[in-house]
């Protein structure tokens, strides 16, 4: 290191040292206050969920319940549609995850490593379809669901009944294949070395076997990413269930919450307890997949 740069380095070091001692804690305090402001709505959600009904309307509102209670959760569990909706949401979300992890990885693999006629053009079309607003597909999918042949009293031409409307299958239909997941899987498999496949091919393995036994097991991060994305997608979906579901038995959690909130005088205690119930599974899935998730998304942008 020459003398000149050494001198410059000292100057830089002097400037780059503002976060020491009290200054560090000043920044903690400032960031802490900003964070507190951002999470305030969640604190009130928890507060209301654990308050007895008598405390909900006390003035001034208190953040800390004086007599914390689980009554709201018990009430929600025993008298509302939330348990049914929770079951429906879990069934639909987990089936969505299962199918997406299989279909999106298989389709992604096909686009990345198998050259079939028109594969490039088809991939561009599929990727383009991911940019079309969901509402464009909403009405066609609704008609397909309603006129699904031989389901819900329909004849072979899809007339006469209600098709898959108001069924789990109907809820699942548009969630089964999601173009974004296919895109992520394709990018991931593009980055993997060809030699693995070549070696297996020499040993006489077919393409399906190569995918299933070699590439898929190596693709855990991308499977985790697809799992998290498709779970949250299904868990949060609102517009499609709103259109397809008509009976309380088929409601998913977002629908149950929304009809809860719309029912005349809102009972905020039970409503917030239900909201907590709706948030926790999504939060757990996110935390479980977080590490893989960031990695999987990061690999998406590397190769075009």
């Amino acid at each position: 290191m020459s003398l000149a740069t050494a001198g410059r380095d000292r100057m830089v070091a002097d400037r780059a040292r503002p976060h020491r001692g009290p200054a560090r804690w000043r920044r903690t305090a400032l960031t802490g206050m900003a964070t507190l402001l951002v999470v305030t709505p969640f604190l009130w959600m928890l507060s209301l969920a654990f308050k007895p009904p008598t405390e909900v309307f006390t003035y001034p509102p208190r953040l800390l319940p004086q007599q914390p209670t689980l009554d709201n959760f018990v009430y929600v569990w025993e008298t509302t549609n939330i348990p049914v909706a929770l079951t429906n949401s879990l069934v639909v979300s987990f089936l969505t995850v299962l199918v997406n992890c299989l279909v999106a990885t298989a389709a992604g693999y096909a686009f990345a490593r198998v050259d079939f006629g028109g594969s490039k053009l088809l991939f561009i079309l599929v990727l383009g379809s991911a940019m079309v607003p969901a509402v464009v597909q909403l009405i066609p999918l609704f008609l397909v669901t309603r006129h699904f042949p031989l389901a819900g009293g329909n004849d072979i031409l899809g007339q006469g009944g209600t098709g898959l409307l108001d069924t789990h299958a109907g809820l699942l239909l548009p969630l089964l294949v999601q173009p974004l997941n296919v895109f992520l899987a394709r990018q991931y498999f593009l980055d993997m070395p060809d030699e693995l496949a070549d070696a297996a091919r020499v040993d006489g393995a077919g393409e399906l076997r190569i995918f299933w036994r070699i590439y898929l097991p190596l693709g855990k991060p991308i499977v985790a990413t697809i799992a998290v994305l498709s779970f949250t997608g299904a868990w949060e979906d609102f517009l499609w269930p709103l259109v397809v579901v008509s009976s309380p038995d088929m409601q998913t959690l977002p629908l149950a919450l929304s009809s809860f909130a719309a029912s005349g005088v809102v009972q905020y205690g039970p409503l917030m307890a239900s909201t907590v119930i709706a948030i926790v599974p999504a939060l757990l899935i996110f935390l479980a997949g977080q590490r893989h998730f960031v990695h999987g998304l990061g690999s998406g942008g590397v190769k075009g």
Partner: peptide, 13 residues
């Protein structure tokens, strides 16, 4: 991380 529907419930209050 929290869904828009859940967020709407909180802000409703």
């Amino acid at each position: 991380v929290v869904s828009l529907v859940a967020v709407s419930m909180i802000w409703l209050w």
